[in-house]
Nucleic acid binder design. Sequence first.
DNA 1: AGTGTGACTTGGG
DNA 2: ACCCAAGCCACAC
Length: 115
Amino acid sequence: MQPFTKAVIAIIKAIPEGRVMTYGQIAEQAGSARGARQVVRILHSMSEAHGLPWHRVVNAKGEIAVLDDESRFKQQLYLSGEGVETDDDGRIDLERYRHRPASENDGWLGSSEQD
DNA sequence: AGTGTGACTTGGG
DNA sequence: ACCCAAGCCACAC
């Protein structure tokens, strides 16, 4: 398995409940700033095998990117179950729910505070 | 080897 | 805020 793939998997698994990350963000953290589409591919093919929280991954606009209606619905359901509010169009307030990965010695916790 | 495709992103109008 | 065009990169045909 490629290092990039492993990194992406690790990053996604590290997203806490009630938080989301964008494809581009994940790609950047994994070392490939323009690898958003590869993140998609990995998510698509490895999420089940690795038990990844795929529902915590959204696009740069903060909206649910999944195509299938059924999956979209499940994603919204999971998110709302974790306290992430989505509007009728499946949009999420990124300012509020985006997960910001820490660089451990910066002394800053990984996520933004909410409420 | 060339072409098409996608759960993306950014920049412009 | 919304829609569109171009850029991107690995993978499937």
